[in-house]
Amino acid sequence: MAGETLTRMDLAEAVHREVGLSRNESAELVEGVLRMISDALVGGESVKISSFGTFSTREKSARIGRNPKTGEEVPIHPRRVLTFRSSHLMKERVAAGNRR
C-alpha cells in the first residue's frame, strides 16, 4: 500500500481546483471547516456528516493505569475523548479501494 500522506495543503489545492477560489482563500476555508467541527465537538455537540462519518465525544471515568515499563501505578484522570465512526459508504469505499 502506498504510504503517501495528504495534508491541509492538498485539501486546499482540491478546493482551489474544484471551486476556483485562490489557494489562499481555499486554505482559509479548509481551516474554517476544521475549526467549525472542532468548536461543535468542544461544545459537546456531535458532528454527523452523511456518507462520511460521525464525530462524537465520550466521557471516560478515572482509572488506575500502569507504566508498562516500570510497572508503577499512575492515576488516569477522567477525560473526554473523541471517536470517529465512519459511514458504511466510506467503509465500503476504503475496503474496495484497498482490495488486492
Partner: peptide
Amino acid sequence: KIVNTIFEEITKAMAEGHRVELRGF
C-alpha cells in the same frame, strides 16, 4: 462544493490507501 470537496478528498485518499494528516485536528 467546498465542504463536499473536503470530505470527498479525504475519503478518496483513504480509498487509495493514503493517510490524511491534519495537524491539531
